[in-house]
Nucleic acid binder design. Structure first.
Lengths: 124, 124
DNA sequence: ACATAATGATCCATATATAGACCATTATGC
DNA sequence: GCATAATGGTCTATATATGGATCATTATGT
C-alpha cells in the first residue's frame, strides 16, 4: 500500500525487414527451383554432387530447389547452369548477342529519367 | 647484439568465401540487369520510383541493374516484374501451368538419386 | 545558362543468409 | 528385408548483403 513497485521491461524488437513479393515473382522462383530439381534428378546427380560443383552447401541447394526467394541470384543461376537449365532459353552465343542489343538500346535512351514538372494536357 | 627482439604480429584473416561463377551465369545476370534498366527507362521511371515500389533501397537497385550476382533473387525478380521484364517469356497463367507440369514430372522421377555401386559394363 | 533532379559512389551499422555439424527419416540397391 | 546412401530438417557462428546517410557528378527541363 505504501509502495507499489512498477517494473517496466523494455523489449527491443529487432526491426526485421520483411519483404513482400508479387505472385508472379513467387511463381517464377518456384518454377525455376522445380526445373532445377527435375533436371538434377534426370541427370542422376545427388544434391551433394551439385552443391559441391556449385561451391555451395547442401542446405542452400535445398532452398534453391524449393524456390526460396532469399538466395543469392548468383548461386541460383550457377546451379541452374550446372544441371543444364537454360536461362532465357538461350545458349551462350545468343546470350552475348542479346547483351549487345540491350547495350545499344540503352545507349539511345536518355541517361537519366526526369519527371515532368507539370501535368501534360493531352485531354482536349 | 645481446638481445634481438622479434615481434610477430599475428594477423587474423577473415576467411572470406569468394565464390566463382561460370561465364554463362555472369552473362545471364548481366543481361537480366540490362533488360531491367532498359525497361525502367522506357517506362520513364526513376530509380527511386522503382526502388520504392519494390521495397528496396536505391543502392540495391543499382547493383541489380549492374547484374551483381550477390543479390537476393527475390529482389531481382520483383524489380523485373515491376518494370515489365518477363521471366520465362511467360505470363502468369502459362507460368502456373508450367509449374504443374514440372511437379508432374518430379512425381515420376525417383525420390532420391542413388549412385551405382559399381561401374556399369556396357562395353562388350 | 541555370537550377535542380537524377544518378553514381562510398561508408557504416545491422539484419540476415550461409556453411557446417548434427540427427531423423526415407528410399534405394542388393 | 537389410544396409546404408540420400534427403529433410534444425541449430549456431560467422561472413556478408542491405539500408540509409552523405557527397560528388551528371544530365535534363525550362
Amino acid at each position: 500500500m505504501l509502495c507499489d513497485l512498477y517494473v517496466e521491461q523494455i523489449i527491443i524488437m529487432p526491426k526485421s525487414i520483411t519483404r513482400t513479393y508479387s505472385r508472379y515473382t513467387r511463381e517464377a522462383s518456384s518454377l525455376l527451383g522445380g526445373l532445377i530439381r527435375a533436371a538434377r534428378k534426370e541427370r542422376q546427380l545427388t544434391s551433394q554432387d551439385v552443391a559441391d560443383r556449385a561451391g555451395i552447401s547442401r542446405g542452400l541447394l535445398q532452398r534453391i530447389e524449393k524456390g526460396d526467394l532469399k538466395c543469392e541470384i548468383g548461386a541460383v543461376f550457377e546451379v541452374a547452369t550446372i544441371v543444364g537449365v537454360k536461362l532465357f532459353d538461350s545458349d551462350e552465343l545468343t546470350l552475348r548477342k542479346h547483351i549487345r542489343q540491350t547495350e545499344d538500346k540503352l545507349a539511345l535512351l536518355p541517361k537519366s529519367v526526369r519527371k515532368k514538372s507539370r501535368v501534360v494536357h493531352d485531354e482536349f
